[in-house]
């Protein structure tokens, strides 16, 4: 029992993934700043943001449903943390996961988005409800191509749904991105996680200039701090998940540490560059993009992986 609590709270759960996630969000902000001729925030800025929010007053909307409103950020953080544990334990070779943990992780990664929807709906704000409906549409859009990518990974790994075995298959036969289907799958995965992390051009549920942060509009103080923390963790976990699926996971033997870190940073760099070179698209355009183009590419990736390419 003690070990599980340690896994959940300290390493690789809450504390560790929040620290790394905060660092990655700093990397993201720093790169963004450099692209935009700005100086950028200091290294500890994510921590300052979090602490400042934690100490601020939490305002509860009068017309909202208080319990649901306050509990959903906690659930979001919980979902992000527990998926961090399930992804990172096999990824760091600490413990092998159980059979079928891939499926569990797919579900767990959706919890934050779903709780945002619940929280937004409970806040009773019309802008939040617009944000919630957009978030729902976004889940419907990016989830299918992401699942198809995972299907192609499963096929390549020899029909296994265990994260440890997927890593093992890549350790034995080289990372999946080394094949044509792997490259296509990686491309699709990058766009899907861009949408999952709600970064421009797919930050439609939060569109600042239109619906003022949408789902998060009514949150303030410590509950907003929890949402921020969830976002930090997601910024670490979701790219790590892609590293696990397609880039051969992490390795900690000698110089390989550097290589592992580089994989993660390259994905963050890609996400940041996409986010800084595009305007936000509209929800119907995003749905079309995922339903037609990304699904098409993902299906091609699946077919190619069946053919063994």
């Amino acid at each position: 029992m003690g070990k599980e609590i340690f896994y959940f709270l300290i390493f690789p759960g809450l504390l560790f993934s929040a620290v790394i996630g905060g660092f990655l969000s700093w990397v993201d902000r720093k790169i963004t700043a450099r692209v935009q001729f700005r100086k950028g925030p200091p290294l500890l800025q994510p921590l300052y943001d979090f602490l400042k929010l934690l100490l601020k007053e939490t305002i509860i909307p009068v017309r909202g449903s208080v319990f649901t409103f306050l509990v959903s950020p906690v659930l979001a953080l919980f979902g992000a943390t527990i998926s961090a544990v399930f992804i990172l334990l096999p990824l760091f070779h600490i413990e092998t996961g159980f059979a079928g943990d891939l499926i569990v992780v797919i579900y767990l990664l959706n919890i934050p988005s779903l709780t945002y929807i619940i929280g937004a709906a409970a806040s009773g704000n019309p802008l939040a409800s617009v944000g919630a409906s957009r978030e729902m549409k976004m889940i419907l859009s990016y989830e299918v191509p992401l699942l198809l990518v995972i299907v192609s990974v499963i096929i390549k790994a020899g029909m296994t749904i265990s994260l440890t075995e997927i890593i093992a298959a890549q350790a034995a036969g080289g990372a999946f991105i080394g094949s044509i289907s792997g490259v296509i799958a990686f491309l699709v995965a990058i766009f899907c996680i861009q949408a999952k992390l709600a970064l421009v051009p797919f930050d439609i549920p939060e569109a600042e200039g239109e619906i003022c942060d949408g789902v998060a509009i009514e949150y303030s103080g410590s509950s907003l701090a929890l949402i921020k923390l969830t976002k930090y963790i997601m910024l670490f976990i979701v790219p790590s998940f892609v590293v696990l699926l397609l880039l051969g996971g992490f390795s900690f033997k000698g110089i390989d540490i550097l290589w592992s870190v580089l994989k993660l940073l390259v994905i963050i760099l890609l996400l940041t560059l996409i986010r800084n070179t595009n305007p936000r698209v509209k929800i119907d355009q995003a749905m079309k993009f995922f339903w037609i183009w990304m699904n098409l590419l993902a299906v091609i990736a699946v077919v190619l992986s069946i053919l063994g390419l």
């Binding site: 692209v35 200039g209 800084n276 070179t277 936000r280």
Partner: peptide
């Protein structure tokens, strides 16, 4: 306009 579209790079460049 860039900022309203979420295209903050254009925002910063134009203002620079």
């Amino acid at each position: 306009a860039g900022h309203f579209l979420g295209y903050n790079t254009v925002f910063m460049w134009a203002w620079k």
